[in-house]
Nucleic acid binder design. Structure first.
Lengths: 257, 257
DNA sequence: ACAGTTTTTGAACTCGATTCAAAACTGTCC
DNA sequence: GGACAGTTTTGAATCGAGTTCAAAAACTGT
């Protein structure tokens, strides 16, 4: 009886280890060869398992992609956890969230591409319900961080309490701005066609405009490049001091080696 | 000699007509059965041509999708042409642009999904260079409308001339906000998970916050629901008065029947 | 009518995701 | 120890949709 339980335990652990192996190798392949470079049979062979075994973990290729995305999202989300507790005003902490995400995107260029591809109806339709919720769940800490900062800002008067809007809906603005800029920045050739460069600098300025428009104190004029830059530097320094990791995801598992 | 030229002419016309047929039928299929419902051989059969003939017009399935997108984009872009000339202040005309796009998205729910899918690296890589530029070109009138309104606003003092920012870069904010919100709104289950509803209402409010943050006159407090609603109604009325078409794309070719 | 050229055709090919019957393995009971 | 039932793994076979291309048809000018 006891023996059986411990064997079952071991088998579950082994199964999980194998799943992790699949996910990590898949991620590596995507990083190296792009999404097209990921082939189910090749990946299985890479990991020294049969194709069928891979399908015992993932219902489909899309399901595997969702699992990879969930893992990366967990790494991404972890960075936001400490932000609400930083020694900065609420508005600066909001900027910290945006900067953290910009840095993450810079360090993991495949991440947004993968997410963009995943939420496509064609792909999303083939992701199992379990993985979908897992992916949404993985991102929760991010919205939680935003919610917390917005709530605090309202409580202490930095931000007037908006009518007909919850904390989530206030956070929706910066969120959409962020997602939209990532989208545009990732669409090869698009911004170039309009002769727009350094999209993330513009993201930061428009972000300040948005917050100032909501009267989030201390108001900051988005049209003062020196002020904007100084504020960015100040918040980046606070992030670095708090030891918020800015390395790409691939390195984070290194401790396990 | 003359005969040859006129035959060549007729053939070119026929070829173009056939291409249009392919594109329209493809669009219809996508509208009815989704992106997955579009199959090259089925589409060819639908149009009573062989599969190979389809491939004389489009290098690949993705290429065809890009052609469909370009057609829709042209229809979308046409709506923006008249906006800079409307009898409204610059800020209201900016809102008119956003509202027009929201309406377009509402009438053509497959459009943003298609675009989102297209700009994915995996898909975009298989689109021929000619179609890529055609698609970018099709969207030009939109950015042109934005550019014109921003330029006028700066010229007449509605908007302080921002340092280190061209008209395009000023328009990038609303653009990113728009794209981002469409993205989020289209990702099935995403906003629901955060209990956010009516994303386009929030888009409008954040849009006002953004413009007010840039000190675009007349400033409008995004936190005055009644004022925001009234302004939306006023601009919508002006759009309707100008006869700016708000019907879905599928109907627009009806005159050709 | 005819030889050469272009266009169209659709069956065959390709390639990768997915399946599933057989093989290997595991733990149990006599 | 070995036969047995259940479970897991295997990888060759299947499947499906995009793409190709050799042959047929249509067209061209003479």
């Amino acid at each position: 009886m006891l023996r059986r339980m411990s064997t079952e335990d071991r088998r579950r652990r082994e199964r999980e280890a194998r799943e992790t192996l699949f996910i990590e190798r898949a991620h590596a392949r995507i990083r190296e060869d792009g999404l097209l470079g990921l082939q189910m049979s090749k990946l299985a062979a890479d990991c020294e398992y049969a194709t069928g075994t891979l399908y015992q973990h993932f219902e489909s290729r899309e399901d595997l992609l969702a699992a990879v995305a969930a893992r990366s999202t967990r790494a991404r989300a972890a960075r936001f956890h400490a932000i609400p507790g930083l020694e900065l005003g609420t508005r600066a902490r909001m900027l910290a969230i945006v900067l953290t995400d910009i840095d993450f995107a810079a360090g993991n260029p495949d991440y947004y591409r993968l997410m963009q591809y995943l939420v496509t109806e064609v792909v999303w339709a083939n992701v199992s319900a379990a993985r979908r919720t897992a992916l949404l769940e993985a991102a929760r800490p991010i919205s939680e961080a935003v919610r917390a900062v917005v709530a605090e800002a309202r409580a202490n008067g930095d931000l007037p309490p908006a009518r007909e809007m919850g904390e989530e809906e206030m956070g929706l603005g910066p969120w959409a701005l962020n997602v939209g800029m990532q989208s545009l920045a990732n669409a090869r050739g698009l911004l170039d066609a309009y002769d727009i460069h350094r999209p993330y600098d513009h993201l930061i300025r428009h972000f300040h405009a948005l917050l100032t428009g909501w009267r989030w104190e201390p108001r900051l004029d988005p049209d003062e490049p020196a002020v904007v830059r100084a504020e960015t530097a100040r918040v980046r320094a606070a992030l670095a001091a708090a030891g918020i990791d800015t390395r790409p995801v691939e390195r984070e598992g290194a401790a396990a080696d």
